[in-house]
């Protein structure tokens, strides 16, 4: 589905990624974990075409996507639900969904909207509210719902649990599992490593812009060094 090889990227002259390799196979949940500032967000942003890439290759569904503008990458079926949710605050809930809808990918707006509202009933209830009036958890639901409007084949979620209450985190992770079962491949970036490793098939640990460890999520979960570093055990 997605192959990243030797990705070096940064902001102007500040390089932050020093050669990232990763792969997502169809139907998998891959998690990227690592400390704050390690380069997780920058990795996703480079894949999406937002952050400047110095060198390396990115292939999505066998097609090189490096250098494409972000909107064209999304239109190919690679959606990115960004860190901090980035809800359009001046639009209503439903307008946010409409903004995220991409026609011509085989499903009508009404069809996906119904699916999103079934998944998150609170969004239906508040569909005419300004997005800025929604709580953090509701905004995260809206952000995920909005990403689904693009009919993604691969969805990248950047810290979906950030700043949310434990009950809502559980709910969000339930949804991630549901999405995976429905056939969407996923990359989940998390600082909350324990929860992410529990649902993931495969994991990459990023440290200072490099991939330090990778492996089946279970192996990584039981790696004694990582336990000490990330899982606080």
């Amino acid at each position: 589905m997605l192959k990243v090889a030797g990705l070096k990227a940064g902001y102007g002259r500040t390089q932050v990624l020093f050669g990232i390799d990763l792969e997502v196979r169809a139907g998998e949940i891959v998690t990227i974990i690592g400390a704050n500032g390690a380069g997780k967000t920058s990795t996703l942003r480079s894949i999406s075409g937002l952050t400047q890439i110095y060198s390396g290759e990115i292939e999505f569904k066998g097609r090189p996507i490096k250098g494409l503008p972000p909107e064209e990458i999304t239109r190919l079926g690679l959606a990115h639900c960004p860190e901090g949710r980035q809800i359009l605050q001046r639009l209503t809930v439903e307008e946010n969904l409409l903004a995220g809808y991409i026609p011509g990918r085989g499903r009508s707006f009404d069809e996906i909207r119904t699916q999103v509202y079934d998944m998150f009933p609170i969004l239906k209830e508040r569909r005419n509210s300004l997005a800025s009036r929604m709580s953090g958890g509701q905004q995260q639901m809206l952000a995920i719902g909005r990403s689904l409007m693009a009919t993604p084949e691969l969805l990248m979620l950047d810290e979906p649990s950030l700043g949310l209450a434990p009950k809502i985190i559980n709910q969000i992770f339930e949804i991630i599992i549901t999405l995976s079962k429905s056939g969407i491949s996923l990359i989940v970036v998390e600082q909350n490593a324990a929860v992410a490793l529990e649902i993931a098939d495969y994991a990459y640990v990023i440290d200072a812009g490099r991939c330090s460890v990778e492996g089946g999520a279970n192996n990584v979960l039981n790696d004694p060094d990582l336990k000490a570093a990330y899982l606080g055990a």
């Binding site: 999406s48 937002l50 503008p69 972000p70 909107e71 999304t74 239109r75 990115h80 960004p82 980035q86 359009l88 605050q89 001046r90 639009l91 307008e95 409409l98 903004a99 995220g100 991409i102 909005r146 409007m149 693009a150």
Partner: peptide, 19 residues
Amino acid sequence: IWIRAASESWTTSSLLGIR
């Protein structure tokens, strides 16, 4: 809606697939 989205944030709009 595209116009209003772009008025709020180009980055977010482009991530949503808006040209």
